[in-house]
């Protein structure tokens, strides 16, 4: 068949209509399937994480009085696409009772365990008395600010809204966008 001479397309009007029609219909049909899938592809954009209400974390007595932080799990309902799992660990926070406060008004501070640099899990280094992210070595002081100025973290640890109700600590659990100077909830 390769030996057959290829006839040239005739430039008449009929041929033009066929060309235009083929391109238009073919183009539309080629778009159909990708367009049908676009919604599913973009669906996660419209799903926002939890309502941001405060969750009970721990009794006040469980947080050391000497100002050192202690890690607590956040237990709440985890919504993962189709699954709803009540009373499950959805994250963790450091709680601490800053020293030097009057006994009558205990204030609790809560810090996210997620490093604001690249999302690593920040440890508390007892010997050095500071927070340390083991991934890129960012260090943070007890009050959450960046300790070593050479730390890659663009901002201090993310502080979460914490409240003492009676003898119990409640925290508004959130995650923040890593890698930027500003604290932007996600």
């Amino acid at each position: 068949m390769a030996q057959l001479p290829h006839p040239s397309p005739s430039p008449d009007r009929r041929s033009f209509l066929a060309q235009a029609g083929a391109v238009a219909i073919g183009g539309a049909l080629a778009l159909a399937a990708p367009l049908a899938g676009l919604g599913v592809l973009l669906d996660p954009l419209r799903r926002k994480s939890g309502d941001g209400g405060a969750v009970h974390v721990a009794p006040l007595a469980a947080v050391p009085e000497d100002g050192l932080p202690r890690k607590f799990n956040i237990v709440a309902t985890r919504v993962d696409a189709w699954n709803h799992t009540p009373n499950t660990r959805i994250g963790a926070v450091y709680l601490q009772r800053p020293k030097g406060r009057p006994e009558s008004a205990p204030t609790v501070r809560a810090f996210s365990v997620v490093c604001p640099h690249a999302g690593g899990f920040v440890d508390f280094h007892t010997e050095k008395n500071c927070y340390l992210c083991p991934i890129h070595n960012s260090t943070f002081a007890l009050d959450g600010t960046v300790l070593d100025p050479k730390s890659p973290a663009p901002r201090g640890l993310d502080e979460l809204e914490a409240e003492v109700r009676g003898e119990e600590i409640w925290v508004v659990f959130k995650n923040f966008r890593p890698g930027v100077k500003e604290r932007i909830p996600v």
Binding site: Q19, G21, I25
Partner: peptide, 15 residues
């Protein structure tokens, strides 16, 4: 040739 007359017909049938 296949283009454009047959392509057009194919496209219409696919549609």
């Amino acid at each position: 040739p296949f283009w454009p007359e047959q392509v057009f017909r194919d496209a219409v049938v696919c549609l």
